[in-house]
Nucleic acid binder design. Structure first.
Length: 808
DNA sequence: TGATAGAACCTTTAGACAGCATGTC
DNA sequence: CTAAAGGTTCTATCA
């Protein structure tokens, strides 16, 4: 189909597409148009990555929100659509594009911003970022994560009543046990609020796209067409066996690993390789080894550019991980996983897209995240450790196909190849059966599980979608779960159980048939907390510190109001003592909303010891050592809490990564979660009239900036992080006010003579004359740390956090 | 005696969404 | 109860 013949789209679109070099639609796109995407029809498109999903979404959104030249045609073909008011004016309504990851939100935003020249406004809304320049209600296209949309629904964002079109990207993730139900419920709610809204769902190729279409009353486009062909295959011995039956030689030299041989072979053809492995350590080790292969193939120019990237990587953070990454990058290889800093991730992704990096070894982050295609993909590890299953489990076909789908760069490669290395002849056959020939498994709703329903039932009642048990069950009829199952008994049973839980914890109340949220329930729902997290936090705040294992009170429910007066009080203040930062960090670390850190061998002993020493600080009941699982979880939370405490005590980043066996990216992740949960805890405290709120706020500000109490004020100045704040403080500048009328030479010295930085900081602090012209750093300032209390005598001298080493 | 390759043993294990408020010349 | 790779330490072998 030619783009000039598109029905129902804005008049400028065909020309716009042509100028971007798009003359004809890809076959699946044409199918989508024939199915009516541009005429407001619901659509499920189950097609491979990179086969033009974005354009389908754009066609749907643009035709839905603008009054196109083809409006009259639209009326003819779809008499149900109310006629547009006037001619040539926008129909109004917003299009919402739902993504599974924050990183994808910004990627999509960039893609949609090409329409801004036609007067369309694009906005982004995620938990950590909201596009500025106006209110979301004024946007024509909004990109958001599914959780953010859910949260917006809970908070009654008015513009959600005016949606013309919603596009759900990667909708096969409804299969995910943790996050799938959110997407499922949110789509159901949006469709109920906007009965005339167009729903478009984009999915990877899955086994049962027809069921999704049935659920969403949608037309179905189910295709495995790709713009560049993808050849899947298995490597064994000295040969590469492809799915088309061909075999080619791919020799493995002595003492060389299979993966290295494949990478070398790809390099001979001037291509790059993406290697998927099953653990972070494997990713890092593989990158180190493969660097010796890529090193040989670099041109001097590439070597130079890579050296620059390596330097930038070292600038991001000065941890061991950072060094290892930079070393590999200098040789043209890199690793990629969730433990590296986000700056690292971006640098690696960009350098790989620019074909500077010849190989990246990655965990599944890269398969799900932003677009990073490669000539060849190697799925080295097709089994992954799964504690709940007790051992290595094979990856799902869907997941392996998603990884394989990264092979082949549109417009750059003639084709893509995806290879799994086999260690034996039997394995070769098995891999062909299991992954090369196999179809992806069907997706299955995970809604009927307690954790999912806990949060969604409360939200559904709180935001008025249902007012009784029957109303809830009726609402749940709109979900995929109901479409997929005939027996309603299981769902009803879990619903009853969860309703009981929510009532016992005072989130919901029941008056005859009538079900309503308590004011606490409303708060919890709006805060986006798992009700179980809220219950834990409330219990902890109410019972205060030091309630050591007070017997086995058999009830699941918190005992509440434990008096702790008989315990030694090491935590400061006598009466009505404030919770300590450690107490609060531990409280939020043990909620289900915080991921647990893994306890390594030896950790159990170490943290039991700490638990004993600091017993008085912990809020709520400590499980006894005989409650095996619960005690272990409690200790894992203690490990997290201590990480947070270290961070908030200015312990160095590389010291923390070392001590807890985490990557720099993990620290950020934990800090972010803690910030969110402490914010929520503060709200709960005020809601319940507890006086812990100020202490919670202090603890939160400290993790936010990673500083001790005395630096909180300084670290609030933009451009001043934990390290600069400490240096300024040690130079006698102890607050924002001090900074405003500080002696400039002292500031300059404390910031290690960097005039540009100093000017910036002074300006941000509101200094009336920040100029550093002709100022010399004062010599009286010593860099010696004046450690007033406690630990953290860690070296602080090495580098500055925001600037590189070189310029001093 | 010292260097080195390889066996035997030990350790560890993917990912990542969310509140709220407010600044700033 | 289930695995496997990488890292570490110990041991055998050779110069």
């Amino acid at each position: 189909m030619d783009v000039a013949d598109l029905p129902g789209v804005p008049s400028w679109l065909p020309e716009h597409l042509q100028s971007a070099g798009i003359e004809a639609l890809y076959p699946p796109q044409a199918e989508a148009v024939e199915a009516g995407v541009t005429r407001g029809e619901n659509l499920v498109a189950s097609i491979p990555t990179a086969s033009g999903k974005t354009l389908i979404a754009q066609l749907a959104m643009l035709s839905a929100i603008t009054d196109a030249a083809g409006a009259s045609e639209r009326e003819r073909s779809d008499p149900e659509t109310p006629p547009a008011d006037g001619d040539g004016t926008a129909l109004g309504g917003t299009a919402l594009y739902i993504v599974p990851l924050r990183a994808l939100a910004s990627e999509k935003q960039a893609e949609f911003e090409e329409f801004e020249q036609y007067g369309l406004d694009v906005g982004v809304s995620t938990g950590n970022y909201e596009s500025d320049g106006g209110w979301l209600a004024d946007k024509d296209i909004v990109v958001a994560t599914s959780e953010k949309v859910d949260s917006l629904v809970r908070n009654d964002a008015p513009w959600l009543d005016d949606l013309a079109c919603v596009v759900s990207d990667e909708v096969h993730l409804v299969d995910d046990a943790e996050r799938g139900p959110t997407l499922e419920v949110t789509l159901a709610k949006l469709r109920r609020i906007n009965p005339d809204m167009q729903t478009v769902a984009l999915s990877a190729t899955i086994g049962n796209a027809d069921v999704l279409a049935e659920w969403l009353d949608a037309e179905l486009v189910d295709s495995d067409w790709r713009p560049i062909s993808l050849k899947k295959g298995v490597h064994f011995g000295q040969a590469l066996h492809l799915e088309d039956g061909s075999q080619s030689e791919l020799p493995v030299r002595n003492s060389e690993k299979q993966t290295a041989a494949i990478v070398r072979d790809t390099l001979d053809d001037d291509g790059s390789t993406l290697v998927f492995v099953n653990s972070r350590r494997n990713a890092e080790a593989a990158a180190g080894r493969l660097a010796s292969v890529t090193r040989e193939a670099l041109t001097p120019a590439e070597r130079e550019q890579l050296a620059d990237v390596a330097a930038e990587i070292r600038d991001v953070s000065d941890t061991e991980t950072s060094d290892d990454l930079a070393d590999a990058v200098a040789d043209g290889a890199a690793f990629h996983h969730a433990g590296i800093a986000s700056g690292h991730r971006e640098l690696v992704e960009d350098a790989f897209r620019d074909r500077l990096l010849k190989v990246v070894s990655a965990t599944p982050t890269l398969a799900a995240g932003v677009n990073t295609p490669s000539r060849r993909v190697v799925v080295r590890d097709w089994r992954r450790y799964d504690g709940t299953a007790g051992g290595m489990q094979p990856l799902s076909v869907l997941e392996v196909h998603q990884m394989m789908g990264r092979a082949g760069r549109p417009g750059l490669d003639p084709y893509g190849e995806a290879i799994i290395p086999a260690a034996s002849h039997d394995e070769l056959d098995e891999l062909f059966d299991r992954y090369v020939w196999a179809d992806p498994e069907p997706v299955q709703s995970k809604l009927a599980a307690e954790p999912a329903l806990r949060t969604h039932l409360l939200a559904t009642v709180a935001s008025g979608f249902a007012r009784s048990r029957d109303g809830l069950l009726e609402f749940l009829e709109r979900t995929l779960y109901a479409t997929q199952t005939d027996e309603s008994g299981r769902l009803a049973r879990v619903v009853d159980e969860v309703l009981g839980y929510l009532q016992r914890n005072d989130f919901l109340e029941r008056d005859g048939e009538e079900l309503s949220a308590t004011s606490l329930g409303h708060t919890v729902s709006r805060l986006y907390l798992d009700p179980m997290s809220a219950a834990e936090i409330i219990d902890g705040l109410r019972s205060g510190g030091g309630s050591a294992a007070n017997g086995d009170d058999a009830s699941e429910e918190p005992a509440g109001f434990t008096t702790a007066s008989d315990l030694a009080d090491e935590a400061g203040g006598d009466e009505a003592k404030d919770p300590t930062a450690m107490g609060l960090y531990h409280l939020v670390a043990r909620t289900p909303d915080m991921y647990e850190l893994y306890l390594r061998s030896g950790d159990e002993e170490e943290y039991s010891q700490i638990a004993f020493e600091r017993e008085a600080e912990f809020l709520g009941r400590m499980p006894s050592e005989f409650e095996d699982d619960r005690f272990e979880d409690w200790l894992a939370a203690l490990k997290t809490a201590r990480l947070l405490e270290d961070w908030a005590s200015e312990v160095d980043e590389d010291e923390i990564t070392d001590r807890y066996g985490v990557g720099p990216g993990d620290i950020r992740g934990k800090v972010e979660s803690a910030q969110w949960l402490l914010g929520a805890a503060e709200s709960l405290a005020s809601e319940l009239g507890l006086d812990a709120a100020p202490a919670i706020r202090r603890a939160r500000t400290r993790v936010e900036h990673g500083v001790r109490e005395e630096l909180v004020d300084l670290a609030g100045v933009r451009g001043v992080g934990r390290k600069r704040a400490r240096r300024l403080f040690d130079a006698g500048i102890e607050s924002r006010a001090d900074l405003r009328d500080a002696e400039k030479s002292v500031v300059l010295a404390a910031l290690r003579g960097r005039a540009k930085t100093a000017e910036n900081v002074l300006e941000n602090a509101g200094h009336r004359d920040p100029s550093m012209d002709g100022i010399e750093p004062s010599e009286e300032v010593s860099y010696e740390r004046s450690d007033s209390d406690g630990r953290a005598s860690d070296g602080e001298e090495a580098t500055d956090d925001q600037t590189s080493l070189g310029d001093f």
